[in-house]
Design a protein around this nucleic acid. Structure first.
Lengths: 343, 343
DNA sequence: GTGAAAGCGCTAACAT
DNA sequence: ATGTTAGCGCTTTCAC
């Protein structure tokens, strides 16, 4: 059923029906009721294409998900973020347009979104330092919000990020307080902004206690299970093994734990592990994770906030950019132990 | 730049330009070249809204992702499936419209997609037995493909599924061949079609060797890590512990492995674990998983196939429904061992 | 308070 | 081979 038919069935003009449905004040209350009731009865929904053509607003937001040409697997972060954002869109009658593109032609994807006029705004995922997409979107005049930061010119656009620096700072402090002195950092690729910040937090916390980060205890790579396993084994078999690990992702932490298992080491007795990740609520029930910061649910929250800011920007252009820094929760589980040989 | 402006800049009518760009045969080759070149230069993209209004085709596919009202986390399966489907859409110039809805009003979401005319077809995720969405979509006349099966009337619509029955049948046989007799099944909720099929495969394989499934070794629940931990501990502490586990998801398997670790049991020596899951390529590098069937990448493949079938249905209405049953790969890792006390 | 008519950007039937 | 025109379903002036 379309507007024309609905109007005909009511003996009214399309105009009046449209106005009634869109809550224009000049329609009489009686008419409005009658129209709305009929619309409900007929499960009438205005055709979004026609509506957006007429209004110039698409009521849709674009998300561009880069998929690695090297891996089959998609980062589950995207799923949670999008779930959060999708919630907000649904509440605000917006659609979510998802473009899955090989990571090399991400830019063209944004260019297309703008040129085809299919969205009112876009979300930028996984920004890299000096990310060209940001300049591009500014140039195109397409409203956008970044999940994370690109490092430079962060003040000129809106972003929502987790306070990675502080999360790792606090986690490191926590381990230091337990008496640990040799704390390993198994980090993500430093090409990613968040990994750089995590390292800074870690190094700063050490420095504040007069300690220097030991390069032998630091790794930076793509966060796979095997990377965690390999790194942990190498370090633990080294001359001065760590007594604690800071790990950047759950899947990598699983690898670390496998290494511990293979070497007969036990969490909370021989070694402590801290994980910063956004997937951990998966494991939470089990309570076997000594400490962790941030959860995948906080990513969902980031998705919600990004979406809300973007919708706000679209509704109120010209406002100054907004920045939200989410604090990661630091949770301490039962099996966290002091450094071996300490009280 | 829109069609009008492009046409004006070329001194041609909109019609000719439109025809040239859409490869209509009646345009002269010279004109076509000239038009296409100008379009390229100006980064012209037809406005999708206008186009779909004019053609009646939206060139968009809807995916409805139900999010549990109980959990924050989104099943990563969706992400991989959508990545696969998205690839196909991109190749075929289709958009992907994602609706994130609370699992209780999924049906309304499909109803809306149809009424708002925002998509040409839809994918049905995670079908349940006698899923009402299937009847609904048939009634609405919206083309659709189901990822999985709803159990009854499977012949009447198109679906793509993994052969869960056979996967579990083979995995069980494999363990039986290793000498295992007490094989535990830690399954998903039987409200899900795939879980039922997995159990059938398991039971059949046992029956074929004259064994009966022991209810004490079977569990069915939502697949969390703690569920795996709890189930494994209970069984292993019971009077007749299992020597092998068939586990329905990676995260649950992590729980099982934690239980083994806590009890001082080792994989491939004391216990074997088989995992059927779609997330396992995560762990694959590490090669510590004795056996597994299907991988998350096969879900991506399922996404591709679903998308291709759907596009085909849209292009060629009235063809008989198509059914694709993907065989799960069965991979055997190094640490798979014979049943304890056997050669 | 309601309606007629124009127009959003495109395609497609109908000229020529 | 190219152009004119109508129309997709809606919103939005403008008129009454």
């Amino acid at each position: 059923m379309n507007l024309k038919e609905l109007a005909a069935s009511l003996g009214l003009s399309q105009t009046t029906v449209s106005r009634a449905l869109n809550d224009y004040p000049e329609v009489s209350e009686a008419t409005r009721q009658r129209v709305k009731e009929a619309a409900r009865r007929n499960n009438y929904r205005p055709n979004t294409r026609a509506k957006s053509l007429a209004t110039g607003r698409t009521m849709a937001i674009g998300h561009v998900i880069p998929v690695s040409t090297r891996h089959e697997i998609v980062n589950p972060i995207f799923a949670d973020f999008i779930a959060g954002a999708g919630e907000v869109y649904a509440r605000n009658n917006h659609d979510l347009l998802l473009s899955v593109v090989p990571d090399r032609d991400e830019e063209q994807a944004y260019r297309d979104l703008a040129a085809k006029g299919s969205v009112d705004g876009a979300i930028v995922h996984a920004p890299r330092p000096e990310d060209p997409r940001i300049a591009l979107l500014s140039r195109l005049g397409l409203p956008f919000v970044v999940h994370g930061r690109a490092g430079v010119g962060d003040g000129s656009y809106s972003w929502v990020d987790v306070n990675n620096r502080r999360a790792f700072h606090r986690a490191t402090e926590f381990l230091l307080d337990l008496g640990h002195r040799r704390i390993a950092l198994i980090n993500g690729q430093e090409a990613m902004d968040f990994a750089r910040r995590r390292r800074e937090g870690y190094e700063t916390a050490l420095a504040e206690r007069g300690l220097r980060a030991d390069p032998a205890l630091m790794r930076s790579d793509e966060m796979t299970e095997f990377y965690g396993y390999r790194s942990a084994r190498q370090m633990l078999e080294g001359p001065q093994p760590p007594t604690a690990f800071l790990v950047s992702s759950m899947i990598t932490a699983i690898g670390v734990r496998r290494a511990l298992g293979d070497m007969g080491l036990r969490l909370g007795r021989d070694v402590s592990v801290v994980i910063h990740d956004d997937e951990l609520s998966y494991l939470r029930n089990g309570e076997d994770i000594p400490i962790f910061t941030a959860t995948r649910s906080s990513v969902k929250q980031a998705g919600r906030i990004c979406a809300e800011i973007l919708l706000d920007i679209i509704r109120n252009p010209g406002r100054p950019p907004r920045h939200v820094l989410l604090e990661a929760e630091l949770t301490v589980g039962e099996s966290t132990g002091p450094a071996p040989g300490r009280p």
